[in-house]
Design a protein around this nucleic acid. Sequence first.
DNA 1: TTGTTTAGTATACGATGTATAAGAAATGCC
DNA 2: GGCATTTCTTATACATCGTATACTAAACAA
Lengths: 108, 108
Amino acid sequence: MPKGDAIGGFEQLVLLALAHLGEDAYGVSIRKEIAARTGRDVNIGAVYTTLDRLEGKGLAVSVIGEPTAERGGRAKRLFRLTGAGRTALEESCRAVVGMMKGLGWGEA
Amino acid sequence: MPKGDAIGGFEQLVLLALAHLGEDAYGVSIRKEIAARTGRDVNIGAVYTTLDRLEGKGLAVSVIGEPTAERGGRAKRLFRLTGAGRTALEESCRAVVGMMKGLGWGEA
DNA sequence: TTGTTTAGTATACGATGTATAAGAAATGCC
DNA sequence: GGCATTTCTTATACATCGTATACTAAACAA
């Protein structure tokens, strides 16, 4: 990335999902959040790959959670935004919002 | 691209610039529009590459305009949104807006 | 101990993002 | 005319991101 190092479009969606989910953000819940809010049925592999990259860039961090007592309740890898992640996200949102302004199709 | 074939983040910015500029959209004016609205100083080469790809996907079309009577007034390649372009743009905006909703950082 | 469910890892490849360098078409001026 | 200068476009190359598929791991149930 160049000057004001931007993030990709899908990375932005994943970061936004993290912002919404707070404590309960992990692969599957993130996928659901995106599907629910955008209608896009994203591939789960795509989500994990992106999460890895975001962590590699310091925009998110992960910890392994406790297994839950349900069938298939394997330990989750929980993600959350870092300070840098929040900053990058705000910046990228500001860019899109700035570009959308005046066209009258959608407000957040 | 997969199911609801999405566009990239930068492609979205360029399409948005087309929506704003109307009749006078060409490489340089598009670059300026993005810079003015986002503060991002994008590379002119990046803009042209993206415009070519958008045209390749049928989301924009271009025509060669008339030269203007100014120093360096070479004929411009003018771009505009196609119907498919407008649809794809609306769709991608809806996605981001949907994901931003409730976080309180920015409205268009 | 086999099956089913939820979750995550590995990997590969096409699509996008970005930069640099070079080319083309105007005007201005000697 | 011919060369400098300005505006705009093309060509090209490579890094990053997006996406899908296949495989692995850990939990409970029967």
